[in-house]
Amino acid sequence: MTAYEERTLPRALPIGPAGWRTPGWWGVLALIGTEAAVFAYLLFSYFYLQSQTTEAWPPSGLPPLRWSAPSTVAMLVSTATVWWADRGMRLGSLARLHSGLIVTVLLGICYIILQCFDWRGEPFLANSGAYGSLFYAITAFHVLHAAAGVLILLAALGWSAMGYITPRRNSVVTVVAMYWYFVVVAWIAVFISLYLLPWISTH
């Protein structure tokens, strides 16, 4: 018996961008790991300064949920739509892929706009105090990630419309969807830390 037979070569193998088999899946997973670490260090800084302060935290009262609650809903719904798009493509439906991606992009833009309204309503600036500095740093960092996510969703949509992405050449969509799940999970962590915890601790 030769070593080939043990190792099942030769046999037919998929070529190129085949789902999670692409190194890009590992690349984006590693990128998500490092970006998640940035959020973790931002939240570490937030809780560290909270633990060291002798004044009220947040200093200017509870952060309003008027905009952030609906934006959280938009983010949660978008995980379902991007999953629906990814799944649809694997089942062979480019129509489901395209419509799912368009709705996800719209929900992402919706989140960014709602977050801008939230900033307009805050009574403090980034240089008013350490809380303000961190609040804007964390939320702006997340909005930047959402904006990047919207851009790559649009790129995936465009490439798919041009015929580059098909059910068998689907790695771009698999990877983009994974990144978008991360954006949403990071927002949940930010929302709980910055908005919900102050509410819970005062009620």
Binding site: S45, Y48, L49, Q52, T53, E55, P59, A126, N127, S128, G129, A130, Y131, G132, S133, L134, A137
Partner: peptide
């Protein structure tokens, strides 16, 4: 930009 991450007089901490 005058943020206050490390400024103790505005709630920041040098040890951060």
């Amino acid at each position: 930009f005058g943020t206050q991450f490390f400024n103790p007089s505005a709630g920041g901490r040098p040890l951060l």
